[in-house]
Computed example of a mutant assay.
Amino acid sequence: MATGNLQYRKMIESDVSLIKAFTTFDSLWKSIEMDALTAKEYINKYVLGEWRVWQQNNKDVAITYHLDHAPSNNKPWLGTVIINPNDRRQGFGTQVVKQLKKELREKGHKAIFAGVPVEADIWIQFMSDCYFEQFKIEKDDQNQMFLIMVSPLQ
């Protein structure tokens, strides 16, 4: 599937190395998301949704994970957006989120949710740039605080 010249494919096992490559210098992401997990263990934690690798001109530029129907509320959730560090600040993140939102809208969904750790200001700003708004704050099972954000799919 393509959005302009941005295309995606489902992630395959050999793509696990992309997570490590895309987050090598991202200590915030690794400390919050990976903790002591390997990239493969991290991906295997999230199996209910769809992992995608996004490419432009056959170059891997982004990885996403989303669910059409999360167990928590049976609504779509955006779980992960990772951009190749060489391609950051070029609009790929907002493009892939826009494409995911369009697909979900076409499936009849009205909104998409995301949970962002409250200490990850830069992630909250990114989600705001993608037209997500604060919905509520929740604690997870490890007592970590998350800002739950929502975006209408109009």
Rank of each mutant, 00 (worst) to 15 (best):
P76Q: 08
I82R: 00
Y65P: 09
W54N: 07
G93Y: 00
D87F: 14
L67N: 10
A70T: 06
Q99V: 00
E103W: 07
W51P: 10
I83C: 04
W54D: 03
Q55E: 13
V81Y: 10
G49H: 12
W54Y: 06
V61P: 04
Q56P: 02
W51G: 05
W77H: 14
Q55T: 09
I82T: 07
V97Y: 08
V81N: 10
T64A: 13
G93D: 01
P85W: 08
V81G: 06
R52A: 12
Q56W: 01
R89P: 00
L78E: 08
T80D: 10
R52C: 15
Q90Y: 03
K101P: 08
D87H: 14
K59S: 10
L67S: 11
K102P: 02
Y65W: 03
W51E: 09
T94S: 15
D60W: 06
D68I: 04
G91H: 12
G91V: 08
G93F: 01
R88N: 01
I83V: 12
T94I: 13
E106K: 14
P85Y: 07
W54V: 07
P85I: 08
K102Y: 12
T80R: 08
L78Q: 12
L67E: 15
Q99K: 04
I63S: 05
D60N: 13
W51L: 07
H66Q: 15
K59V: 15
S72D: 09
D68C: 10
V53M: 02
N73G: 10
H66F: 15
V81Q: 08
N73S: 09
G49T: 10
Q95T: 08
I82L: 11
I82M: 05
N74E: 13
I63Y: 02
A70G: 04
D87Y: 14
V53N: 00
D87R: 09
Q55W: 00
R105C: 07
N86C: 05
P76L: 01
A62Y: 11
K59G: 01
N57M: 15
N84R: 07
Q90L: 11
G49D: 09
P85E: 09
L78C: 07
K98R: 13
H69M: 06
I83T: 02
L100F: 05
T94F: 03
K101N: 12
K98E: 15
V97S: 01
R88L: 01
H69D: 07
N74L: 14
N84C: 11
D87L: 10
S72G: 11
R89N: 11
L78P: 02
P71M: 11
N58G: 05
G49I: 04
Q55V: 01
N74S: 14
K101V: 11
N84V: 03
P71Y: 15
Q90W: 00
K101H: 04
Q95I: 01
R52E: 15
F92I: 13
K59H: 04
R88S: 06
H69E: 13
K102N: 13
V81F: 09
V96S: 06
G79S: 05
N57Q: 14
N74I: 07
R89D: 07
G49W: 11
A62D: 03
H66I: 14
K98A: 15
L104A: 04
I83A: 05
L104V: 06
S72E: 12
W77T: 00
G79F: 03
T64P: 08
T94N: 11
R88H: 03
